[in-house]
Nucleic acid binder design. Structure first.
Lengths: 142, 142
DNA sequence: CGGAATCCTAACCGATACTG
DNA sequence: CAGTATCGGTTAGGATTCCG
C-alpha cells in the first residue's frame, strides 16, 4: 500500500483524485490532455470519417497519426504515445521491414478509456457554438 | 462563419477537433485539464461523499472549493473558475455580506459537461491499479 | 520511416505580498 | 473572505539536426 487514501483492501475504489497526495490525481493529469484525447480517438477510428460511419477501432502507423493530428509536433506525438504505452493503454508493434513500420493499437484498457474521451471530444465539438456565444457576452460586459 | 471546418450551415456538427485550425481543438485543450475536471466534479457534488451517496450538484463557495481541491493554488483556482465562467459552464454569484460571500454553481451547460468529466475521474480512480501494474512491467523491461 | 538528442523560448504555475 | 498583482523557477513544447 503506497499512497492509497484509505485501507479498504486490495479491491480498488480507494483512490480519490481530490487528494493532492493520491496517485489518481497524477493519472488524471496525464489523461486530461488534448493529445491523449486525440490519439485515443484517432486509434478509435473517429478521425476522417463521414458522420454516419460507425468509427471502429483500428491500428495506425506513426505517420498516419501524425497526419490525422494535424497540429501535433513529432516530439509531442512520440511523448504521448510513450506514456500511453507505458500505462498500458496501447501497444506498439515494430514490423522489421525496411524502412521500419511501427503500428499503434488500443488495448482493452485503452478501449475502455476511449469510451470516455470520445464523449469529451464530441462534447467540445457539439457545444462549441454555445461556448463561443457565452464568451462574446462575457467579454462584452467587461 | 469564422473558422469552421466545412460549410454545412448554421446547425452545428461542423467542428473537427482533429484540425489544427479548428476552435474546438482549443476548447478541448481547455476542458482536458486536471483542475477543470476537479472543479466540475466538486460542483457536481462528487467530493467528500460516502460511496453510496448519490452526489447531487451543489453551489460552493470559493473557500470550500479551495479546501476540496487540496492541491490547487489560489491562482490556478481563480484562473480555472474565470475561464469556466467565461465559457458559460458555471455562474459566479457575489453576495454583498461583509466580508463578501462568493458562490459558484454549474449552469445547464456545465451540468451536461459534468456527465462527461465525472466519468473521466471515475475511470482514473477505478483503473489506477491496472495502470500502475503496466507501468511497473514497462519500467522493468527497459 | 520512425524516431532520439539538443537547444531554446514561451507559458505555466507556485509563492508571496497587497486590497476591498 | 475572495480575490489581484508581481516575481521568478520550472517546464512544456516547437524547431532543428542526426541516426538505424
Amino acid at each position: 500500500m503506497t499512497t492509497r487514501t484509505e485501507e479498504t483492501g486490495p479491491s480498488g475504489a480507494a483512490y480519490n483524485a481530490f487528494l493532492a497526495v493520491c496517485p489518481s490525481l497524477m493519472l488524471l493529469d496525464r489523461l486530461a490532455n488534448k493529445w491523449v484525447v486525440l490519439v485515443l480517438c484517432a486509434l478509435g477510428g473517429d478521425a476522417e470519417k463521414a458522420p454516419d460511419v460507425p468509427a471502429a477501432p483500428t491500428a495506425l502507423r506513426y505517420s498516419e497519426l501524425a497526419r490525422l493530428l494535424s497540429g501535433v509536433s513529432q516530439k509531442m506525438l512520440t511523448q504521448t504515445l510513450r506514456s500511453l504505452e507505458r500505462d498500458g493503454l496501447l501497444t506498439r508493434t515494430v514490423v522489421p521491414t525496411v524502412p521500419v513500420t511501427v503500428t499503434y493499437e488500443l488495448t482493452d484498457l485503452g478501449l475502455s478509456l476511449l469510451g470516455v474521451v470520445r464523449r469529451l471530444r464530441e462534447w467540445a465539438q457539439s457545444h462549441m457554438d454555445d461556448v463561443l456565444a457565452h464568451r462574446e457576452k462575457y467579454d462584452a460586459r467587461a
